[in-house]
Design a protein around this nucleic acid. Structure first.
Length: 128
DNA sequence: CAGATGACTCCCA
DNA sequence: CTGGGAGCCATCT
């Protein structure tokens, strides 16, 4: 067990920037943090977070589809308490709560990259 | 250095 | 929707 790895520290730092009521996915965090990490690395960082950064709002990190893969129904409760809404399948409505990324100045200060462009939902097809 | 691990993601049956 | 398998990568032993 070592001190907080540099990459993990960056992940915690970025996670701490997520405002209340917003959520993001493991993959997005990995993309913004960069440094060669991926969604799995983020998950591993958050798993060990309890030892390094107990104050980080880990509940705001969900899977790409908005599902909560962790076994904590507690995560959903925490998010609902922040105003995050879920659909009937128990998935976070990423459409309305997806975080756009850190502040430009903050990102520049820590060399964070831009969040990956995600396709907007087909919320409504142009009437033909 | 090699093997094992994991709060992920994607694809297919 | 559920389940299985592959690809991915940092960190720990």
């Amino acid at each position: 067990m070592d001190e907080t790895p540099p990459l993990y520290a960056r992940i915690y730092l970025l996670t701490g920037q997520i405002p209340t009521g917003k959520v993001t996915s493991y993959g997005d965090v990995a993309a913004i943090v960069g440094g060669g990490c991926d969604a799995r690395t983020v998950g591993e960082a958050l798993r060990a977070m309890g030892e390094h950064a107990p104050e980080v709002p880990w509940q705001r990190i969900v899977s790409q589809d908005g599902t909560i893969s962790t076994r904590g129904l507690e995560q959903r409760r925490l998010l609902e308490d922040e105003g995050v809404t879920f659909d009937q399948r128990g998935r976070v409505l990423m459409i309305h709560h997806r975080w756009a990324g850190p502040d430009a100045a903050f990102a520049a200060a820590h060399r964070f990259g831009p969040p990956p462009a995600h396709d907007d939902p087909p919320e409504q097809l142009e009437l033909f």
